[in-house]
């Protein structure tokens, strides 16, 4: 078996790389695929928190590289889904503890026994980024509809284009707020895609549920009712090659909601 190694990156920090990694990983595992998540943000690890696995970590990626344990020992199984496991970053070391070659080795070993290896990349374009992309053949660039995040994403796409091994770079637009787009206060999805000129993989709406899910250590894809969870499940389906239409975030659902919306529009006119 040769799995797919996908790096999740953004350039700018705080746009939702780790949240995206946790959710896509969980969604793919729910579909029955074997998934390993690698946290490469050495010294600032978060992915374990989002999955609620912090208390189960014994060995980290640095222990594997420095041969204090076997790779298999360092993989932490998810609480709910045995298909999902995590290779945690070391909290007590920094990015210089690992180099690109070593990370590529780990990715190569992991993809032999898993369908997906998702690499959560640290912010920035330095060593940490170079390490994270070394073993990957696909990339997901996460951005938010803000100029600073988009500028950084553009830089990252430029860097990814120079990597021979990366043969697909796709865009994930996070924290979209349809009502702000409507009132012209936020860049629209078309604007962002128009600027960055790469294929769109998904649109994730801003959802307050993300905050509680992060704090609880429970990825939002497990919440059947959350809109962001649904958007992430759709992203996973698209990664698996299915054609899923993008969520229509503009129109309210249901007859009553539409009616209310129509009435509110009338009121504005009057």
């Amino acid at each position: 078996m040769t799995g797919r190694v996908i790096v999740i990156t953004s350039g700018k920090g705080g746009v939702g790389k780790t949240t995206t990694s946790a959710n896509i990983g969980t969604a793919l595992a729910k579909n029955g695929y074997k998934v390993v998540l690698i946290d490469t943000d050495l010294g600032l690890r978060n992915l374990d928190l989002l999955l609620g696995l912090e208390n189960r970590i014994v060995y980290t990626i640095v222990d594997v590289i420095e041969e204090r344990c076997k790779l298999k020992q360092a993989l932490v199984k998810d609480k709910k889904n045995p298909n999902l496991s995590l290779l945690a970053a070391a909290q007590t070391r920094d990015k210089t503890a690992v180099n690109a070659e070593q990370l590529k080795d780990i990715c190569d070993k992991l993809k032999e026994k898993n369908d997906f290896v998702l690499v959560d990349c640290p912010a920035g374009i330095e060593q940490g980024f170079q390490n994270a992309v070394a073993g990957a053949s696909e990339a997901i660039v996460v951005t938010t509809p803000e100029m600073s995040a988009i500028r950084d994403a553009d830089r990252i796409i430029g860097l990814l284009n120079t990597k021979e091994d990366i043969n697909s770079t796709k865009l994930l637009l996070n924290r979209v707020r349809p009502n702000l787009i409507k009132s012209n206060e936020m860049m629209s999805v078309d604007d962002v895609v128009g600027i960055l000129e790469i294929p769109l993989l998904g649109i994730i709406p801003e959802d307050t549920g993300i905050i509680t899910s992060t704090n609880k250590g429970e990825p939002i894809v497990n919440d059947e009712n959350a809109l962001a969870g649904k958007a992430y499940r759709n992203v996973a389906q698209r990664i698996l090659g299915e054609e899923v239409p993008f969520l229509n975030l503009d129109e309210p659902k249901g007859f009553m909601a539409k009616l209310k919306n129509a009435i509110s529009k009338l009121k504005v006119k009057v």
Binding site: R151, D152, D154, R155, I157, G158, L159, N161, I195, E197
Partner: peptide, 23 residues
């Protein structure tokens, strides 16, 4: 297409087919 952070420096004329993004 030149993306943010990419630079071209040439002793002569430069002709680019594609956009030159901000940055």
């Amino acid at each position: 297409t030149l993306r943010s952070g990419q630079t071209v420096n040439y002793n002569g004329n430069i002709f680019i087919i594609g956009d030159a993004h901000p940055g």
